[in-house]
């Protein structure tokens, strides 16, 4: 694995965590407008898809970083 167990990516986790939390906060504070446009169908269908993708990148990287800080790594010998 590329992650070294000695150097834990605290700064990266903090940055991604903040970005993820801010994105969630932004969306849920404007939930009424969001729900109005996201269910219109047609070209508006791109909105929920792109939003889900965006959150999976930001929040997914945050989750990954947090798991490696917690010491949860794949078994050695697996992968490349």
């Amino acid at each position: 694995m590329s992650e070294s167990p000695k150097k834990k990516p605290y700064f990266k986790a903090l940055l991604l965590g903040a970005l993820s939390a801010a994105s969630y906060a932004l969306l849920f504070t404007h939930v009424n407008q969001v729900m109005e446009y996201f269910v219109k169908g047609g070209w508006y269908a791109a909105l929920p898809i792109l939003t889900a993708l965006y959150f999976s990148f930001v929040h997914g990287s945050f989750a990954s970083t947090l798991l490696s800080i917690a010491g949860l790594q794949a078994a050695k010998g697996s992968g490349h």
Binding site: V39, G41, G42, A45
Partner: peptide, 10 residues
């Protein structure tokens, strides 16, 4: 499904 407007993004 999104084209039919059925996704609840929350």
């Amino acid at each position: 499904w999104a084209l039919a407007g059925l996704v609840d993004i929350r």
